[in-house]
Structure formats: C-alpha cells, structure tokens
Design a protein around this nucleic acid. Structure first.
Length: 510
DNA sequence: ACGACAGACTT
DNA sequence: AAGTACATGAAG
C-alpha cells in the first residue's frame, strides 16, 4: 500500500471522486467521525482532517464510522452502497407489493427512514413518486399477464394489486396508452382456468449465462417426493403464500429451462391470484434469475486472484491433479444459488441436516412431508402430466406440539424442530401485519432457540433468503473442497458474494 | 405544524 | 331476452 498523499486525498474528497472510494478514509477531529472519499456530507476543513488507509485504523484511532457513507462495511456490501441500498430495498419491497395495501408511511418505517426521504430518493433517481412507480410496476405485471395468459381481466386486476377493476382500467390506460382489452386482442396463448385452480404459463427471463446443469443437479439431489419434482430440464414444487396464515394462497409450479431463449417457461397452478406477483417473485428468487453472474464472477476472480498467483508457482512440482486447483478454475460461469421456498422450510431442513449425511437428511424431510404435509387436490387437472400426489411443506402449527414419533432422531433435535415452529407461531401477529416473508423472517432471531447454531442460521439465510454473502465455513463439504487448494483461500475477500463462493466450492466436489 | 391541494381509491 | 365482459363518467 502506497503512503497517502495528503494533497491527492484533499482533492479527491473535495470532489467526492468515486475512483478513490475505499482507498483512503477521512477522519475529522472535531466530530470524531470518519468518512469515505465520496461522502455526501459537507466537506470538513482541512485543518481538522486526518487520513487513514483503512477503516480499521481510523476506528482504532477512536473515530466512529459516518452514518451516511458507511465506511465501516466492506466494499459492495449492502451497507457500503449506502443510499443506493435504501432505494434498492424500497424498490424491492414495492415490487413485492408493499404499497398495495400499506401506506408509504409504513414502508418508510420498515426502511428506517423518513417518508419525506423516500419520496426524495424516488424523485431524484427515478423521476416519479413511490406510488406512481408502484402503479407502473403493477401495470407492467398486468401487461405480462394480458399477453401470456387468458385470465379474465378482473382476475388480472386483482393479481396486479388493484382492488377495483374501475381503478385498474383507468390506471392502465394512463400508464400504457392502451386499454387492457386492446392488449388482450393481440395475444395468443394457452392458459386455462379449470375451476379449482387457476393455471397459467409465464416466461421468466434471466441474464445469461445460466449454469442449469449445476442448478438441476443440486435441486435433484435434494428433491423431496410429493413436495418437489425434478427432471433433466425442469424443476417444480408446491408452495403456500403467505405460508400458514389465513387467507393464504397455495399451489404448485413447474419451471422448464429454455436455454436458447434465456428463460424458463413456468406453469403455475394457484387457487387464487391475489398474491401472484409475490409468488412469481419468489420463483425468480428460488431459481436465482436476477443474479448478475458475470459481475459476481469478476468480483470473485479479483478477490481470489492473489491467492491464485501463489498457487500457480508450485504447479509444476505437483503431480497430483486434484491438488493443483486454482482459484480461477474454481469458477464456473453462470452458477446460481438454488433457493428454498421459505425461510421456515429452510430452517427445518437445516435442522434435519444437522450431524447426518445428505441422504439421511433427505429421508427425514421426506417422511416429515409425507406425514404432516397437507395434500393438494390435483384431480381436476387432467392436462397435468404430474398426476401424482402433491403435498405442501408442513406448517409451523402442525409441528409446534408434535411428538414426532414417526422417525428416529435424538429427542433434543426433535425439540429443536418444535422450538423453531413455536417461534413462528408466536410471531403470527407480526407476520400478519407485514406479509412479506423475505423481509420479516430473520434467522438471526432464532439465536436464542435451543439447538440452533450458526450453521443452521447461515444455511437458512443462504437457501431461504438467498442472502448472497454467507460463507458456510463450518460445512463438511466446504471443508473438503478447501483442502483441494495448496494454500488457504482468502474467503473473507469474497464479500459480498460469499454465498456464491460457497456454491462454487460445493460444485467442485462433483 | 398546518392547511390547501392533487391524486388515489371505491362504489 | 338475459347474461357476460369490459370501459367510463360521476360522486365522495
């Protein structure tokens, strides 16, 4: 690291030059706070300023990290991105329907900022109000449904988050310059409404490359009979939304990979369409369609590159092929994070995976689903090739006070299953209020529950929330994979993509 | 903090 | 002739 040039630093911070972001930190004597070079705050006087190369140094010198530019967190992490993150979180919540039944005030409370500020963010970055943006998104989704399905327009209005058709028609015309039916007329499609369940087909696109083979292998190895089904080109499963409260919707989907079109064709069957948008969002999450894998792999390559150079020097001397693995060959293009439908399910599956092999865990989950999962009636669905029984994942209520005498397992671990389930039951009030599973289901809240350790929590975060920055260092498979390297990998450098590193490492074991 | 106003929403 | 599906104005 080069010694800091005060003059360069001064110019960089005064111009808030993003190219210097992360290369040095500005500490201010008068306030006791240190900032990144790009901090939007009014620049302090040069007399009061001390420069540091790293955030840690500044912190140990007694300064506290600035709350606006967040110099304490790693580059690229959610907090590091600061302002952008608040906006991104807001956008994510709105895309999930946060403004359909709740007010902007409630949304801003969830984000931990003032309503005024959210408005301002939207105005400067997107040029519209949060509500207008939300409506636009709703209309976009409606447009997709009009194009690709045959649902009645009333149902589409409902599915897109409108509570009256009148309002939907009006808003749609304003946003899209066309009436809903005008779009419908130009559509050809194959969807049916067979009475008990709505069935529709959607195309869900992703950004290539997509390493389907890896995703397929991973999901197939863990697929639970009656809950999930997996073929060479498809994955499907049952679902519930929101899981286990009244007025929830349920159904199942099958996603077929269409490589040459960079998309999945997804057949969805659902009892009512009210939460369709959230369901589609969750399918996108499970298949990890929104990941920018090029960016992720570039970042990982950069983070692990130093390591790679060190290894390469020894390559010639080493005759064992498995031992000359380099960080570069570790990365396979388009690798994604296979998700689990809900955080709760991920937690239960993680507990059942404690201390046993993947196959043993698989059998336990299978039994659990078979005994406690309620079945979905698929008789009315003659066109469906999957005519076998389908079951939902057991609800917290069905497990909370269950003796679980249908399989052999240490009593303490059975108690852990009950602990987690009871935790969910006691939270019902909270989850009722905020429908979104992703945002309010925090595995960190499980810490006080007996029998739940860091591995379980991290596993649930990785697979249930698709948190991109979880490194499962304690996992047996990961340990095995790490042994294939001559020198230890600098896994911390992989932030904020440590989950992807974890997946890449697991993938090596095949 | 407050009121006027625009726009969101339902019937 | 009655019923269905969608669009739209008026009022609050």
């Amino acid at each position: 690291m080069l010694p800091l040039d005060f003059e360069v630093c001064r110019k960089a911070r005064l111009s808030r030059d993003p190219r210097f972001d992360g290369t040095f930190f500005t500490a201010v004597k008068t306030t006791g706070i240190f900032c990144r070079s790009i901090c939007p705050a009014t620049p302090p006087k040069e007399i009061n300023v001390t420069y540091f190369t790293t955030a840690t140094e500044a912190a140990s010198a007694g300064y506290r990290p600035c709350l606006r530019c967040r110099p304490d967190s790693a580059p690229g992490s959610p907090a590091w991105k600061g302002v952008n993150t608040t906006l991104e979180r807001a956008i994510a919540l709105i895309n999930d329907g946060a403004l359909q039944q709740h007010s902007l005030t409630e949304l801003s409370e969830r984000l931990g900022v003032s309503e005024r500020y959210v408005r301002k963010l939207f105005n400067t970055h997107l040029g519209t109000s949060p509500k207008t943006y939300a409506l636009y998104q709703q209309c976009l989704f409606a447009k997709q449904l009009l194009h690709q399905t045959q649902l009645p327009i009333t149902e589409i209005a409902l599915a897109s988050g409108f509570n009256s058709v009148r309002r939907f028609n009006d808003c749609f015309k304003k946003q899209m310059q066309l009436t809903p039916s005008a779009i419908r007329r130009s559509a050809k499609n194959m969807s049916v409404n067979n009475g008990a369940l709505h069935t529709l087909q959607l195309q869900l696109h992703y950004r290539p490359p997509y390493h389907w083979q890896h995703m397929q292998r991973f999901l197939r190895a863990r697929a639970i009979p009656q809950l999930e089904w997996c073929t060479d080109n498809s994955y499907g499963r049952t679902f519930e939304w929101p899981s286990s409260y009244d007025s929830g919707s349920y159904g199942y989907f099958t996603a077929y990979h269409v490589a040459d079109k960079h998309c999945f064709t997804v057949d969805i069957s659902v009892n009512e369409v009210t939460h369709l948008k959230s369901i589609v969002n969750n399918i996108r999450r499970i298949l990890d369609l929104d990941a920018d894998t090029r960016r992720i792999e570039n970042d990982l390559r950069a983070a692990l590159f130093t390591e790679e150079k060190n290894i390469k020097k020894n390559t010639n001397k080493n005759t064992n092929e498995r031992n000359i693995t380099t960080a570069i060959t570790l990365l396979e293009a388009g690798l994604r994070l296979p998700g689990i439908w809900s955080v709760y399910e991920a937690g239960i599956r993680a507990i059942l995976g404690q201390q046993v092999s993947v196959t043993a865990a698989h059998r336990l989950v299978g039994t659990l689903v078979e005994v406690l999962g309620s079945g979905i009636d698929t008789e009315v669905d003659p066109g469906d090739e999957n005519t076998s029984i389908k079951r939902l994942f057991p609800t917290p209520a069905s497990l909370a006070n269950n003796e679980i005498d249908f399989f052999k397992m240490p009593a303490s671990r059975k108690q852990t299953l009950r602990n987690l389930s009871q935790h969910y039951l006691s939270q019902e009030g909270l989850t009722q209020r905020c429908v979104n599973l992703l945002q309010n289901d925090q595995p960190d809240d499980w810490q006080s529950l007996k029998g739940i350790g860091p591995w379980t929590i991290n596993y649930a975060k990785l697979r249930g929330q698709s948190n991109p920055d979880i490194f499962l260092g304690g996992d047996l498979g990961i340990k095995k994979a790490l042994e294939l390297f001559d020198k230890p990998l600098a896994t911390d450098n992989a932030s904020p993509w440590r989950s992807y590193l974890t997946m890449h490492l697991w993938n090596m074991l095949y």
